[in-house]
């Protein structure tokens, strides 16, 4: 093996290993390896710092950068579970799923899946927390996903029952058990935002203000997370609209999507045509249909 690769693997193992509760580098790793011995073997000391202390600067910097990105992405989850539980959750998740991408934007991409396997981190408010995570991840994806050219008005007017309609790749549809859309708007308006990737160093952990959410009554919500003039918005949908859109997005025809939409609907037959017309009108004006 190349010596460079070996050094980099050993340094990365130290740098990416979780910090202690006091945010210091542990003397010994969870697998028993001594960080003191590794630091001494790899890093020169100087007149002010030991090898261990020099390596620790990078260990702390790594975690503070990840914390800050993750906290910025999931302030709603933090508000629901509280800072202490959030900290534990964040460390455990980022240990299982360190960044595998050149951008920190994708840091939370496995969070929903991971939480289904580790529900202890979000008990007793599991459903509320899961809904929030799904919404917060959708928000990240909708923010910078691709936009496609809109369908021609002529093509739109020629659609028939057997046609398919393609939707903007940035759209996400969520079926939620709690009104987390209202909650996240409150939470976000209290926090700031930062500048994405940068190349400066930071030694202290920046703490976000967090307000603990006492309780929230359950409510069935269907939501479109979408973009208008490049800002992310949440648009509540009727259950029928949600079913119609999610069916269309799987590539089914318009008539199949309509059947699906009204399968268990309380909307009377005679109101369905105007209902559909209004819905399509709105979505088309929002630019959701593409060529």
């Amino acid at each position: 093996m190349s010596e460079l690769l070996e050094i980099q693997r050993r340094v990365a193992a130290a740098v990416m290993h979780p910090l202690t509760r006091q945010e210091t580098m542990p003397r010994r790793r969870s697998n028993g390896v001594s960080n003191t011995a590794e630091a001494d073997a790899l890093i020169k000391p100087n007149d002010r710092l030991t090898s261990f202390e020099r390596l620790e600067i990078y260990n702390r910097q790594y975690w503070f950068r990840l914390y800050s990105s993750f906290e910025e992405d999931f302030p709603g989850l933090m508000a629901i579970v509280g800072r202490r539980k959030f900290d534990t959750l964040m460390r455990a998740y980022l240990t299982d799923f360190p960044s595998a991408s050149f951008t920190l934007r994708n840091l939370g991409s496995h969070l929903e899946q991971w939480l289904t396997e580790h529900p202890e981190h979000i008990e007793p408010r599991k459903n509320l927390a899961m809904d929030m995570v799904r919404l917060e991840w959708a928000h990240i994806e909708v923010f910078d996903s691709a936009v496609e050219p809109l369908i021609d008005p002529d093509d739109l007017s020629e659609l028939h029952d057997g046609s398919q309609l393609r939707l903007q790749p940035y759209l996400r549809f969520l079926e939620l058990r709690y009104p987390v859309d209202d909650l996240i708007i409150e939470v976000r308006s209290e926090g700031g935002s930062s500048d994405g990737s940068s190349n400066n160093a930071s030694i202290s952990r920046k703490h976000r203000k967090v307000r603990h959410i006492a309780s929230l009554a359950p409510e069935e919500i269907h939501l479109a997370v979408h973009r208008h003039e490049n800002s992310v918005y949440y648009k509540r949908l009727h259950r029928e609209e949600y079913r119609l859109l999610t069916t269309l997005s799987t590539g089914e025809t318009i008539s199949e999507a309509i059947d699906m939409a009204f399968a268990e609907s309380a909307i009377p037959e005679e109101e369905r045509a105007p209902f559909l017309q209004a819905a399509f009108q709105t979505w088309s004006s929002l630019g959701w249909f593409i060529r």
């Binding site: 010596e3 980099q8 990365a12 740098v15 990078y58 790594y62 360190p98 920190l104």
Partner: peptide, 15 residues
């Protein structure tokens, strides 16, 4: 290293 990103600018061994 090995597909894991530190998002830091780590110094090189000058070899």
């Amino acid at each position: 290293v090995d597909g894991r990103y530190t998002h830091d600018l780590l110094p090189m061994p000058y070899t």
